[in-house]
Simulated scan of single mutants.
Amino acid sequence: MSSLVRANSAYRVHATSARLAARQWRYNSSVTTTRRPPRTLPAFSMENKVSLVTGAARGLGKEFCRAFVQSGCTSLALFDLDESEAKKAAKELTEMACVNSDVKKEDVKIIGVKCDVSSETAVQKAFAEVIETFGRVDSVVASAGIVENYLALDYPFDRIKRLYDINVHGAFFTAREAARKMIPLGGGSIIFIASMSANIINIPQPQTPYNASKAAVKHMAASLAVEWAKKGVRVNVLSPGYMATNITKTILRQDPERKKIWETMTPMGRIGEPEDLAGAIVYLASDASRFMTGSEMRVDGGYCII
C-alpha cells in the first residue's frame, strides 16, 4: 500500500471517528442526566455576572443569551424593540436555565426590556431599569442591527438613515451607557457585533451602507477600547460570517443560487449555525478574555482569508 493510500485511509478513519464522536456528544447533550457537568476553565463561567444583550428577542441576539445561560448566567436583560417578544424570550430562557440543572426558578432573574437603540433616551431609560433590577451590569452585547440589499444608486435615503441609526448610533449609545454604569464599579466587558462585512465586500448582494456601518462599528470598538482601557472597560468585536438564522434560511430558500455562491466562497464549504458563535461570545464576555481589548474575533468559516 502506497504512503498516499495509507494517509487517505487514515484520514477517512479519523474523519469517521470524529463524526461518530460528534454525534455521540450531541446525543449525550440532549439526554436528561444527573451527572455532573464536564469541568472547564473557571474563567469561562458566566455565573454571578449580570449580562445584557440588545436585539435579543430573536436571531443571533437570542443565541448569545442562550450561550450565557448555558454558561451559568442567571441575571440577564434582553433589550428589543418588540417588548412582548423580549419578555417571551426571557421566559423561555428562564425555563431553559432550570433544565438538567440544580438551579431553581426563583434563583433566575431574566427580564425583557423594550428598547429602541436608535434613541439615546430610550437606551438610557432601559439601562436605568437594569440597574434598578440588578444593581450593576458586567457584560453588554450590542447585537441589535439590520441589513438591507439595495443598489447604491437606488437606496432610499430614509432607509440609509434608519440603518445607520440602528447599526452605528445604536451601538454607540449602548456602549456609552454601559461604560457609564461599569466604570464606577470597576469595569466590565462590551462586545460589538459587527460582521465579516467590515473586512470584505459581499457578493452577489449589494449592501454598501451595511458594510460601511459594520466597518464603523469595528473601528468604533477599537477607539473606545483605547479610551476606556485604564478604566477597566474592555471593548471587543465579534464578526460573524454567513449564519443560518431563521431570516437567512427564508431568504436562501427563495434564492438557492445565492446559498450555493456563499457556500462555495467559504473555505469550510457551509454556512455557519448560530450556535457556532456560542463559544466566542462567552469568551469575550467572560473573564477568560480579561487581557483582550480592541480586538476583532471573526467566526466566518475562513471566508475572509481568501
Rank of each mutant, 00 (worst) to 15 (best):
K49V: 06
E63M: 03
R23Y: 09
I271E: 14
G272S: 08
L163A: 03
S239Y: 02
P42L: 00
E83C: 04
G232N: 09
R234E: 13
S51H: 00
S119Y: 13
S189D: 15
I306C: 12
A278G: 04
I247V: 01
A152G: 12
R58L: 07
T208K: 14
S45L: 14
A56G: 04
M297K: 03
S101N: 12
K62Q: 10
K91G: 01
S223Y: 09
G61A: 14
E132N: 08
G187I: 09
S213C: 12
E47L: 12
R258S: 02
P204A: 08
N211R: 11
K62V: 10
V113C: 06
K91T: 01
F44Q: 02
R159P: 06
C65R: 03
E85W: 08
I193H: 02
V123F: 03
K114N: 09
F172M: 14
L4T: 14
N167M: 10
M1P: 09
V50P: 01
I193G: 00
E257I: 02
A179W: 02
R159G: 03
F44G: 05
V299P: 03
Q124M: 10
I111R: 00
G269W: 08
K260V: 01
R35N: 09
A10L: 15
P256C: 05
T121S: 11
I247M: 13
M1T: 13
D158G: 13
R19K: 12
S3P: 05
A21M: 07
S239I: 07
K104H: 09
I203F: 12
K62G: 00
V99W: 08
L153C: 10
M243G: 10
R58Q: 05
E120M: 08
L4V: 15
N149R: 01
I160T: 11
N236T: 04
G302K: 14
L81K: 01
P204Y: 11
Q205A: 11
Y283Q: 04
A126G: 08
F192W: 10
E275F: 08
L41I: 11
N202G: 04
A278M: 02
R35S: 12
A86F: 02
L76S: 03
S239C: 07
S239E: 00
H14D: 10
W228N: 06
M243R: 01
M46G: 02
W262S: 02
E85Y: 08
M297N: 03
I110R: 02
L153M: 10
E83R: 09
G170I: 07
A128W: 06
E129G: 11
A278D: 09
I271R: 13
G302P: 15
D255Y: 04
L252M: 06
K249I: 07
T293P: 07
V50A: 05
A144R: 00
D102R: 04
T32Q: 07
